[in-house]
């Protein structure tokens, strides 16, 4: 009797001790398998002769060579550079500007903040669909202008293969700049008000106070914002699918839509895997140095 109750209490005690580990274990195992397991599997696929179905014959760097010979991949990469560059720069600029304007202790700040931040709560599919309607020449902005009597108004970027990628930029900026604004606003609120007053008494104008003192002193937020925006840009997929579908033709393809097309429509699993690995390498190139500096910074503080 006494022995059994002591085993029971031992069991309870060890359960208590390990409860957190037990609770975390399933999701840990799942992410180990589904995220890292499939990363390894994809890396393997990229070295295989897979086409429609996965096969495990070794092909060396053959898939990567084929990938880089494809005109469509070059278009996707070029689009990523255009889209990523513009998206990051415009979001930073708009976010920063909105944050500075909201920081002026204006009335109804809470309402405005919510309005600007709200697009972030939508899924990219919704954003893409909405902007597709707005930018559709026969349906949205152009038609409205024509109906209002401005017959010569022309805004056909959505169906123009030279400009389709810029419509993706417009929609993505609309969605993300509010979030960047919130990041900057939080940082601005952390700045000591006395600094602004001191600069004011020193005779600095408001733009000079912001660009000369405040914004340089919140530089770490820029780094965080760039990392957030950059990984959004690299992995953006749903927005393009909903907005342009990669078209016209493949003129607004991004690496993610390229990969999807190759895997599920063109029966080129190997090329698709190779392009996925290229994207992974790109994201790692951004994230790893950032994490490294963050973690090292944490150690220094601790």
């Amino acid at each position: 009797m006494g022995a059994s109750s002591s085993t029971e209490s031992n069991l309870m005690a060890s359960l208590q001790r390990n409860l957190s580990k037990i609770v975390v274990a399933p999701s840990f195992a799942a992410s180990l398998f589904f995220v890292y397991g499939f990363i390894i599997w994809t890396a393997w696929m990229a070295f295989s002769k897979s086409r429609m179905m996965p096969v495990y014959d070794w092909a060396g760097l053959r898939q990567y060579e084929r990938l880089w010979q494809m005109e469509r991949w070059h278009v996707a990469i070029e689009n990523l550079l255009i889209f990523g560059g513009l998206f990051i720069v415009i979001c930073l600029f708009l976010g920063c500007l909105l944050a500075v304007l909201l920081d002026q202790r204006i009335r109804a700040e809470g309402v405005l903040r919510t309005i600007f931040l709200y697009p972030m709560a939508l899924s990219f599919i919704v954003t893409g669909t909405t902007w597709k309607w707005i930018l559709n020449p026969g349906l949205g902005l152009e038609k409205m202008m024509h109906d209002l009597g401005w017959a010569s108004f022309k805004f056909d970027w959505l169906v123009n293969s030279d400009f389709a990628i810029y419509t993706v930029v417009i929609a993505a900026v609309w969605q993300a700049s509010g979030f960047i604004m919130a990041m900057f606003l939080a940082a601005l609120r952390g700045v000591d008000q006395d600094i602004i007053r001191a600069a004011y008494m020193d005779g600095a104008s408001l733009p000079r106070i912001y660009f000369g003192i405040i914004i340089p002193s919140i530089r770490p937020v820029f780094l965080s914002a760039i990392v957030v925006l950059a990984h959004l840009a690299v992995k953006s997929f749903d927005l393009v699918i909903a907005l342009t579908g990669g078209g016209p033709g493949y003129s607004s393809d991004l690496p993610a839509t390229f990969m999807y097309t190759m895997a599920f429509q063109r029966n080129q699993l190997g090329i698709s895997a190779a392009s996925a690995m290229m994207m992974l390498a790109t994201v790692m190139a951004i994230i790893v140095p950032y994490l490294y500096s963050e973690l090292r910074g944490g150690k220094k503080n601790g």
């Binding site: 000591d192 001191a198 600069a199 008494m201 600095a204």
Partner: peptide, 27 residues
């Protein structure tokens, strides 16, 4: 007039020298 603040309100992104000369520079 010149003011010294409780929190010092130094410009965090500038060196001490820049902090001191900022007002003169603007003038």
């Amino acid at each position: 007039i010149a003011m010294v603040f409780q929190s010092y309100a130094l410009y965090p992104n500038m060196t001490v020298r820049k902090n001191i000369t900022f007002g003169l520079e603007i003038r």
